[in-house]
Nucleic acid binder design. Structure first.
Lengths: 109, 109
DNA sequence: CAAGTATGTGAGTGTATGCTCACATAATCT
DNA sequence: AGATTATGTGAGCATACACTCACATACTTG
């Protein structure tokens, strides 16, 4: 049986993962892989309501995935922990792997 | 502007992350780090409804995170892509990192 | 083949999440 | 100071998700 303290940890780890589990947030993390960007650079790349992006940035910041820095009118966001970028490539290889196994399974039929 | 094909990729990457973004599923991935387990081994570790665990396993399998293998009455689950285990340690260091920065920010006040 | 064991599924309900709109704040510029 | 630009926030609605219960399937064993 998993004890309460361990569940708390799993809860918070899940929160970090939740913070990345949305296509728009994946896109933002992808953009930030090459360094910090201000909101005004992120908005034109992602075709959706401005305030929506603000909220996605807030979610990731609250979860500890992003860090923000204000410079004049602009707010710059960056990845707080670079390892989160690996999530994306691992997710990609998971998809590839599954596609390959599914194809093999079909071939067997 | 991000094109449609790239959004499709982000969508599917987000699906993989969603498949891990739940405390129970984090716990299961944690268990499977040391190798495959049958459902009957997972259930007693996690104190919740049996059918609920079935559904969480189905979600992760559909997303390509887990693989299942039937042996007699039992079904054994394992990680399809070992790199997903890194998610947990990266999530943990994200939490640690954020805590450290928050503490530093408080100290500055 | 009947009973038992291990696991999966569909329907219904409650809660959480995402999105948009109107409004708020904060720094800059004239 | 007043106007403008960049960003954030709260309320309300729509959708998605997690959970439970009753039921279904599939293999095994007497």
């Amino acid at each position: 049986m998993i004890d309460q303290h361990t569940w708390d940890l799993y809860d918070r780890q899940a929160d970090v993962l939740k913070a990345l589990a949305h296509p728009i947030r994946v896109a933002i993390v992808h953009m930030l892989q090459d360094g910090e960007r201000c909101v005004c650079q992120i908005i034109p790349e992602i075709d959706c309501d401005r305030t929506n992006i603000s909220k996605h940035l807030a979610i990731m910041t609250r979860a500890g995935v992003l860090r923000s820095r204000k410079d004049g009118l602009k707010v710059y966001y960056s990845l707080r922990t670079p390892c989160v970028a690996n999530f994306l490539s691992c997710a990609a290889s998971t998809l590839k792997n599954k596609a390959a196994e599914d194809a093999k399974a079909l071939a067997r039929i």
